[in-house]
């Protein structure tokens, strides 16, 4: 019987080793798998390369991981925000490496990795600092930059519901990077609000087919905990 469900968030992240690359879903705090990240901090892996849209908000999620000193490098599109103080401090102290990627290129490069492509030619960033030194090509009269896929050892994402095959549905704009990160990581781990019986997710509306997901763990939504 295929059963990708695990009993706890700590079991879900137990094999994340020092030096791993880890994609973390979320746009700001929407879709941020806070409980998986808390478990990762407790687990103790360090020297991590994190791929995520932002460099943490407030005190939870990626911000907590950075605060704990576990992140060697972050690949993201929008690190600087009103509440990115933990990243800002580490960056200014030269304790964290930043690779800045335009958001759409980040998404396309992650998707390319998941789709088995060797790279993409993207018009985004052409002629800017972020494309300096990169190969370019003119195709049908338009200029493109060659960008390589971004893959990772692990992806930590957040869904609404899963079944034991790993099929996932999301909630509103918390979907964001979840589906493509699941494709691009060797081991994709999803925390969900509930794991439902096989067959109860409508196959017409499953967003991430279970083939892209290796582990699911149920965790009550943050809103419910706060209430």
């Amino acid at each position: 019987m295929v059963d990708k469900s695990v009993d706890s968030v700590s079991e879900a992240v137990a094999d994340i080793a020092d030096g791993s690359s880890v994609m973390i879903g979320g746009f700001g705090t929407a879709g941020m798998p806070d409980e998986l990240i808390e478990a990762l901090i407790e687990h103790g892996a360090g020297n991590l390369t994190i791929i995520s849209n932002n460099a943490g908000n407030g005190e939870t999620g990626v911000a907590a991981l950075i605060k704990a000193g576990r992140v060697r490098k972050i690949v993201c599109s929008f690190p600087r925000q009103a509440d990115s103080h933990h990243f800002d401090a580490r960056y200014r102290a030269d304790e964290i490496e930043l690779e800045l990627v335009p958001q759409g290129n980040l998404a396309a490069r992650i998707q390319a990795a998941g789709a088995g492509l060797g790279g993409i030619f993207t018009p985004t960033g052409y002629g800017t600092l972020l494309a300096e030194g990169k190969e370019t090509r003119r195709i049908d009269g338009r200029d493109y930059v060659l960008e390589y896929p971004i893959r990772a050892d692990f992806a930590l994402i957040k869904g609404r519901r899963a079944d034991r095959w790993g099929n996932l549905v999301y909630r509103k704009t918390a979907r964001n990077f979840g589906p493509i990160m699941a494709m691009a990581a060797r081991t994709a781990i999803a925390q969900v609000e509930e794991i439902v019986p096989l067959g109860s997710l409508d196959p017409e509306t499953i967003v991430t087919p279970g083939i892209f997901v290796q582990r699911v763990v149920a965790f009550a939504p943050s809103a419910a905990r706060a209430a």
């Binding site: 746009f27 925000q81 958001q103 999301y170 909630r171 509103k172 704009t173 918390a174 493509i180």
Partner: peptide, 29 residues
Amino acid sequence: DLINAGKEPVTLLAGGAFFHHADSFAMMR
């Protein structure tokens, strides 16, 4: 879970849709 690009809360109109980031930027690019 329902926010805009500035991470402010918003609403969804009738007919609205959600999609992942690669689709979102495919709409632009």
